[in-house]
């Protein structure tokens, strides 16, 4: 059976959003809520255009993306290293797993107060929040991925002469990659949460800061506009950076049916 044309799928999705925005507009038109609390989609779009024209949006977007780029890179390196240790050492796994599962239940915003106490209002605190939000899920996914590697790969690698020092990067991490990439995606999302949460309080530039400013000025169109931008970029990177990498890996492994093109 051939899959339905992807163009038709896209049409349905476009229609869905059209209905959604139409519903929003209808609710606005017939609702009795004042527009400084609940703006119309058009008002949000106009405000977004204004913020962009005034030169507020781009520096903030850049700042948040830059912080995520740097912070998440660190989170990724630490998470992979700890996950690798947990994957090869039974004791490290037993000890750290409960801790990281616990940390994962903590809302990312809950890291903000402690980061304020430790780092004050400096940017370091934002990196701290990103790292603490993203790192546990990367570590757990890496450890779980390693523990689920079929033992036959390890045996094959040993008989082929792989020295012990080369095992982690030649065999163990690549073999666990499909699970690791899931953790990398989740970590990215949680880090994104953390970054915006921290910026709400600690920053004078960034998407979180624009949200905060919108609230201070009672500017609900700005708040919603920045929310939309935040969602859009979080999703964009998830889908087009990590999503593409994940799909490539899954295809190589034969975990994903290759579509006839």
């Amino acid at each position: 059976m051939k899959q339905k044309a992807p163009i038709l799928d896209k049409l349905y999705v476009a229609l869905f959003y059209l209905v959604l925005i139409g519903g929003w507009q209808l609710f606005f038109s017939f609702g009795k809520i004042p527009d400084y609390i609940f703006p119309s989609p058009a008002q949000v779009a106009v405000r977004l255009y204004e913020i962009a024209r005034e030169g507020l949006l781009w520096p903030s977007l850049k700042a948040t993306l830059y912080r995520m780029g740097a912070g998440y890179s660190i989170a990724l390196s630490i998470g992979l290293a700890i996950g690798l240790l947990m994957g090869v050492s039974h004791i490290a796994h037993k000890c750290a797993k409960s801790l990281f599962l616990g940390l994962q239940t903590l809302p990312t915003a809950a890291w903000v107060p402690i980061s304020l106490l430790i780092f004050g209002l400096s940017d370091k605190g934002i990196y701290f929040v990103i790292i603490m939000s993203a790192m546990p899920s990367v570590a757990i996914a890496t450890a779980d991925g390693i523990l689920q590697i079929p033992p036959i790969y390890i045996r094959a690698a040993r008989t082929l002469g792989t020295p012990a020092y080369a095992m982690p990067y030649r065999i163990v991490l690549p073999a666990a990659l499909p699970q690791i990439i899931t953790g990398v995606k989740l970590g990215w999302t949680l880090g994104w949460h953390g970054a915006v949460s921290a910026e709400l309080i600690k920053s004078s530039v960034g998407l979180g800061y624009l949200l905060y400013m919108g609230r201070e000025l009672n500017d609900s169109p700005q708040v919603i506009a920045i929310m939309v931008v935040t969602i859009l970029f979080g999703l964009l990177l998830d889908q087009f950076v990590f999503g593409v990498v994940e799909l490539k890996i899954r295809k190589r492994w034969g975990l994903e049916k290759e579509r006839s093109e």
């Binding site: 790969y153 045996r155 094959a156 990659l177 890996i249």
Partner: peptide, 18 residues
């Protein structure tokens, strides 16, 4: 210990999927 002087082929192919 294992060494590539004595190479083993397994029941399953054990090829590396990556």
């Amino acid at each position: 210990k294992p060494h590539n002087d004595r190479l083993m082929m397994f029941q399953e192919h054990a090829l590396f999927p990556w």
